[in-house]
Simulated scan of single mutants.
Amino acid sequence: MAAKEKKGSMTVEEAGRMGGEKVREERGSEFFSEIGQKGGEKVREERGSEFFSEIGQKGGEKVRDERGTEFYQEIGHKGGEKVKEERGPEFFSEIGHKGGQRVRELIEEGKAAEGGSNKKS
């Protein structure tokens, strides 16, 4: 009887959740990825890809204001621990080495470009 009493007094949130669950049952969870992809492409066409950077920036600022900068330190630490658990501590050495090599390449390219521009003067 309790379920019947509740009928008609469903919130919009509850109705949306039930509708989403029904769609997932009928079409599969991949459907949501597909329509999200299409929606994102449409937004990019209409507003440009920089729109996503802008809303990401605003979202990050709101989180910073609400939770503080320490929040990012906490989630970064948790993420690092998870990566270490899944890939091992040597993973960080590998990516650090790759990053260092890339920095060296960029420095060499910059020096070569500088040297080439000095010869033209």
Rank of each mutant, 00 (worst) to 15 (best):
G8K: 07
K58A: 02
G115W: 03
G19D: 10
G19R: 06
R27H: 11
G28F: 05
D65A: 06
K98R: 08
K6E: 15
R64V: 00
G28Q: 05
E34Q: 11
F92H: 06
G100I: 09
R24A: 15
G28C: 06
S49A: 13
K7C: 09
K62L: 07
G20H: 05
K111V: 05
D65W: 00
Q73P: 03
G28I: 01
G16S: 10
G20I: 01
E66S: 01
S117W: 13
S29C: 10
R17P: 11
G8M: 05
K22C: 08
T11V: 06
E45L: 05
K120G: 12
V23R: 03
K4Y: 12
F91K: 04
I95F: 01
E21R: 06
F31N: 09
E50K: 14
A112G: 04
K4A: 14
L106Q: 07
P89Y: 13
K7W: 09
G56C: 00
H77K: 06
Q101F: 03
R64H: 01
A15L: 15
R67A: 00
F91H: 08
R24H: 14
E61H: 07
G19P: 15
M1C: 11
G19C: 12
K42T: 06
H77C: 06
E66F: 00
G19N: 12
N118A: 15
R47D: 09
K22W: 08
E41T: 10
F32D: 04
G115M: 02
F52C: 04
V43T: 01
M1A: 08
E25M: 13
M18W: 09
E74L: 07
K62P: 01
G88A: 02
G110W: 14
E114C: 13
F52L: 03
G68F: 02
E21G: 05
G100H: 00
K22P: 06
E74C: 03
R87M: 02
E86C: 02
E114A: 15
G19K: 05
S29R: 14
G80E: 05
Q37H: 12
G56A: 00
S121N: 10
V23C: 06
G116M: 11
G20K: 06
